[in-house]
């Protein structure tokens, strides 16, 4: 079993800071005073009242942003690994 790689603390990585900031904003968008603007019945989307659709979109955003960040991290780790291999 591999020793897990030590992750860089979020403070060092500007992309991580941006992702963390996104989640703070997402949280803010789901509560007062932002959500009340969107917690209406109309317009109806995919049969749902807008108040529900809005929260579901928040959930999907949460998934896609972290998924994108995860793929980016993996790509960067692979690139780092290749660079280390070449310099050895």
């Amino acid at each position: 079993m591999d020793e897990p790689r030590r992750a860089p603390p979020p403070g060092r990585n500007p992309v991580a800071v941006a992702v963390a900031a996104f989640y703070v904003l997402l949280f803010a968008a789901l509560v007062w005073p932002v959500y009340p603007w969107f917690a209406t019945i109309e317009p109806r989307v995919l049969a749902m009242p807008f108040s529900l659709f809005y929260v579901v979109v928040g959930l999907l955003f949460s998934f896609f942003v972290l998924f994108g960040y995860y793929l980016w991290e993996r790509k960067r780790e692979t690139a780092d690994g290749d660079a280390n291999g070449a310099s050895r």
């Binding site: 989640y23 997402l26 959500y35 917690a39 009242p49 108040s51 529900l52 929260v55 959930l59 955003f61």
Partner: peptide
């Protein structure tokens, strides 16, 4: 709609 809070917290 009060129940939507469950979805909201589960997303973050």
């Amino acid at each position: 709609a009060a129940a939507f809070y469950i979805l909201a917290y589960a997303s973050v």
